[in-house]
Amino acid sequence: MEITGLGWSGTRTDRAEALAHFYEHVLELRLVHTEPHFWVFRLPDGNHVEVFGRQFPGKEHFTTGPVVGFTVTDLPQATRQLREAGVELLGEPGPTWQHFRGPDGNVYELVSEVQHS
Rank of each mutant, 00 (worst) to 15 (best):
F62N: 06
E88Q: 14
L75V: 11
P57F: 11
L75W: 07
L89M: 03
P44I: 03
L90N: 04
Q81H: 12
G102H: 05
A85T: 01
H48R: 13
V87S: 09
R80H: 14
P66H: 06
N47H: 14
T96Y: 07
E88L: 06
T64P: 01
R83G: 00
G86Q: 02
G69E: 01
G91Y: 02
H99D: 09
Q98N: 04
L82T: 06
V67E: 02
Q77D: 11
G46H: 14
P44Y: 03
G58T: 10
V72A: 11
L89Y: 02
F56L: 04
F62W: 07
L75S: 12
V49S: 08
T63L: 01
H48Y: 13
V68E: 00
F56C: 05
P57L: 09
E92D: 10
P44G: 14
V87W: 08
A78Y: 00
T64M: 03
G58Y: 13
F41N: 04
V87H: 08
G69Q: 03
D104S: 08
P93M: 08
V51L: 10
G69R: 03
L89F: 01
H61M: 14
F52S: 08
L82S: 09
V68G: 00
P66R: 08
F52H: 15
K59P: 00
D74Q: 08
G46I: 10
T64K: 03
L43H: 05
P76S: 13
F41S: 07
R80K: 15
G58S: 10
V87P: 06
F100H: 05
R54L: 14
L89D: 02
T63I: 07
V87I: 14
P66G: 08
R83Q: 12
F41V: 09
F100S: 06
A85C: 02
K59R: 15
G102S: 05
E88K: 09
R101G: 00
T64Q: 03
D45M: 10
R80S: 15
V67R: 00
P44W: 07
F56M: 07
P95F: 10
T79V: 15
D74N: 15
R101H: 01
G91W: 05
R80E: 15
Q81S: 14
P76T: 13
T96K: 04
E92K: 09
G86I: 01
F70I: 09
L90K: 05
R80G: 14
V49M: 11
T79G: 09
Q77F: 07
F52C: 10
A78N: 03
F62Y: 15
V87N: 08
T96Q: 04
F56W: 12
T96S: 05
W97E: 07
N47S: 15
G86R: 00
F41H: 10
H99W: 05
E60K: 11
D104F: 01
T73H: 02
E84S: 03
G53V: 13
P93V: 09
T79P: 07
R83K: 12
R83D: 07
T73A: 14
T73K: 12
G102P: 00
G94L: 08
V72G: 13
D104P: 01
F70P: 01
P103V: 02
D45F: 07
P44Q: 05
P103D: 13
Q55T: 11
P93R: 13
W97C: 06
T64W: 01
F52I: 07
T96N: 06
D45C: 09
L82V: 09
F70G: 03
L90G: 02
